[in-house]
Design a protein around this nucleic acid. Structure first.
Length: 306
RNA sequence: GCCGAGAUAGCUCAGUUGGUAGAGCACGCGACUGAAAAUCGCGGUGUCGUCAGUUCGAUUCUGUCUCUCGGCA
């Protein structure tokens, strides 16, 4: 028994999710729930390509500008807030449209992820990081292999970050990480709509978008954030565009290098995103954004689902 | 015009005491459960500038030509 119908719009950065989602919401009496890990943060607008208020054309958006850059959001917190937003929209008799972006976050909703309850513990993470420097990442991973062989087998031995998270959960809960990480039936009946474009075209759009970001003065946006007192090494500033501009602002690289790096890293990001949303996934109905009347075709498909 | 250095993967370059080659980046693929725009793994890629000589065998040695970059006129 699901709690309602959910439309999920997925696809890589710069494919055209924003305009499609707003069009769908207008046509279907819907509201947008963002599944983009960088839209949470207030003041991070240009570099994240966050939709502007005018662009939204009155369509309500959820989970955008809900935190300051020094508040650390997470998968579990996102999941809770997203469920809440979706349920509220359904209660109003409207159509929720989840739009992302962040593959892990989308999947947590669409695949009913049961996330280990243990929250992040910075002190322990620091301690484990120091330990990793002593015994090496291999040593850390071997420790995990002893405590939770199943988790160890799914985490690469050189991936310190994921190894540390698994150890953190085990140390703090006294239970295996692999036993606390599960999937249940999704809470909603889901219609997955994938937006696609040829890679080459996507890369071109990415490059153009980045030039535009520089014209809109991303550098000033970053300077303003730092001037407000936010530390340059906040997790939120690991976002593409921000970390490179921060390097530039701190005099570590030239502006040209920063732009080049932003382009390069965004392309890599496109590829990593494509890993979550696969073209041969039978659960996703893909639409080519270059085609004529795509928006109409997507609308028809969504209507048939509802 | 002369002298010197160079020409090897899409790019920057390494290398082969002669047995047809390898790094980084780019590019492609994959993992992902409270940092995820994060973090990490796997994989191709080549007439080794031209023509000739020496050699069983040349990308490697010799000569030649072409081009590039320095310096000197």
């Amino acid at each position: 028994m699901t709690e309602g119908k959910l439309i999920v719009l997925i696809g890589p950065t710069a494919v055209g999710k924003t305009s499609t989602s707003i069009f769908l919401a207008q046509q279907l009496n819907g509201e947008v729930v963002s599944a983009d890990s960088r839209y949470f943060y207030r003041g991070m607008n240009i570099g994240t390509a966050k939709p502007f208020a005018e662009e939204m054309e009155g369509v309500p958006h959820h989970l955008i500008d809900v935190a300051d850059p020094d508040e650390n959001w997470s998968l579990a917190l996102f999941q809770r807030k997203a469920y809440q937003a979706i349920d509220e929209i359904l209660a109003k008799g409207k159509v929720p449209i989840l739009v992302g972006g962040t593959g892990q976050y989308v999947e947590a909703i669409t695949d009913g992820w049961q996330i280990p309850k243990q929250r992040a513990n910075e002190a322990l993470r620091e301690e484990l990081n120091r330990w990793a420097e002593e015994v090496g990442t291999e040593g850390l991973h071997q420790r995990l292999a002893v405590l939770d062989p199943e988790a160890a087998s799914t985490i690469d031995h050189r991936n310190v970050r994921r190894t540390i998270r698994a150890l953190e959960v085990i140390f703090l809960t006294g239970k295996k990480f692999s036993d606390q990480r599960m999937k249940k039936e999704p809470r909603y009946e889901i219609c997955r709509i994938g937006l696609n474009r040829p890679r080459e075209e996507l890369y071109q759009r990415v490059d153009q978008r980045i030039e535009l970001m520089m014209e809109m003065d991303l550098v000033k946006e970053v300077r303003d954030l730092l001037r407000k007192g936010y530390a340059y090494d906040l997790p939120a500033f690991s976002a593409i565009g921000y970390r490179e501009v921060i390097q530039y602002v701190r005099g570590e690289i030239s502006k040209e290098e920063a732009v080049m790096l932003i382009k390069r890293n965004t392309r890599k990001f496109v590829r990593r995103q494509s890993n979550w949303f696969k073209l041969d996934d039978p659960a996703i109905r893909w639409f080519e954004m270059g085609d004529a009347n795509v928006a109409q075709a997507i609308l028809e498909y969504a209507k048939a689902f509802l």
